[in-house]
Design a protein around this nucleic acid. Structure first.
Lengths: 208, 208
DNA sequence: CCACAAACCGCACAATTATGTGATTGTCGG
DNA sequence: CCGACAATCACATAATTGTGCGGTTTGTGG
């Protein structure tokens, strides 16, 4: 498996771009011949047979890096994307993840870490800084601030499966009026006034 | 700053427990004096002033590791929890994350990696294997399988904010009957038949 | 040019939901 | 013992929603 990992760089800053390219070309297991300064030119030139990993600046003139992700993923579905960021607690991290990025590097990452990140992402990993990893992991945490009672949590859970009053009543073996009563109390505690609002709030805030 | 990181181990297998403890005691920056074989005994003995990081077996007799996480987090809110797993693609990874775990180690992780993981989690990171990192990152990916039209996506988005037909209509500057028409089509494509069911499906499957 | 989808609008009727106002029972801590 | 709260159930009424049926207009691609 002497195959080199083919890396492309999409970065508008000439200095950073060429510096990264030289760095990567010096690594025997990596080749980096495709350099672009916009998403548009990159999309026009790249195809699935010529690139394994893209280093993509998160903020680019014209089509931004974030906006570019789905475009790359459509044309190059098997290519991994690593975002280049300046500030690592970037608000765009989650947007990039949702769009399909698999890793993050800051532009000031030491070169050996850049190399290892590229190998890691090509190997099915998700390289990122410790801070970003924690952000990502923390975003899963359930918060159960509104003191819902046990039964109320059960009812809310059923609602989050999209069930009607009647179906919840059957699932919990109580009357529909009781379900309504619980739901009323849930609405008060969550400060909402409809089922879909309650479901939205519960799922978005990970109450269930 | 010469403070050692105080680690506790909750693991029912005596051999693994003592092996880990010896390993950690040999590391100058770490101390590991608190060993337990159940969640219950650990909870009874530990308090916030005596432990920084807990290594917690994911499957324990009695109260499982997963069930133990919220208990530890309640009593020891500032203590970081690293789960010990055997199979890393464990279905329990996401449960553990939701419950509040910050890292994952397999019991066969090389010792230097165990040490670095403990330091990493104590430093605000989230140590985990490349496979788990990718699982976690991939779980953010938006999938937009049901070919919703642009407008339908917009409507679904508004619904996921908990809005009523009227509010959606106002937000998008169209009539309420048009909103209903779009919603009808969304229901067909998502194979649901109520607003809360659509919201639940959209949020759970990351369609929005 | 024609088919088709997307986006728009309307009406009618039934079902579900939201809200108000009750009530009973049991548990728990002060 | 009492107050607070969880959990249960009931009835009534108005609002919202779900669904069937019917349209027009616009843009896109074969």
């Amino acid at each position: 498996m002497g195959e080199q990992i083919r890396v492309a760089i999409v970065e508008d800053d000439l200095e950073i771009r060429t510096h990264l390219a030289m760095l990567l070309e010096n690594e025997p297991e990596i080749t980096c011949k495709n350099l672009f300064h916009t998403v548009k030119t990159a999309l026009a030139s790249l195809n699935p047979d010529t690139v394994d990993v893209i280093l993509l600046d998160i903020s680019l003139p014209g089509t931004s890096g974030i906006e570019g992700i789905p475009l790359f993923r459509e044309k190059l579905p098997d290519t991994e994307i690593i975002m280049l960021t300046i500030h690592q607690q970037d608000q765009f991290v989650f947007e990039a993840l949702c769009a399909g990025a698999s890793g993050f590097l800051t532009k000031f990452t030491p070169s050996n870490r850049i190399i290892s990140a590229i190998k890691e992402v090509h190997n099915g990993g998700a390289p990122m800084s410790t801070k970003i990893a924690r952000m990502v992991v923390s975003s899963f945490r359930k918060r159960t601030n509104p003191n819902l009672s046990k039964r109320e949590k059960e009812v809310l859970n059923e609602l989050c499966d999209g069930k009607s009053y009647k179906m919840v009543a059957d699932a919990l073996n109580i009357s529909r009026d009781t379900v309504r009563s619980h739901i009323r109390n849930i609405y008060k505690k969550l400060e909402v006034n409809s089922k879909s609002e309650a479901v939205a709030k519960a799922l978005k805030n990970r109450l269930v």
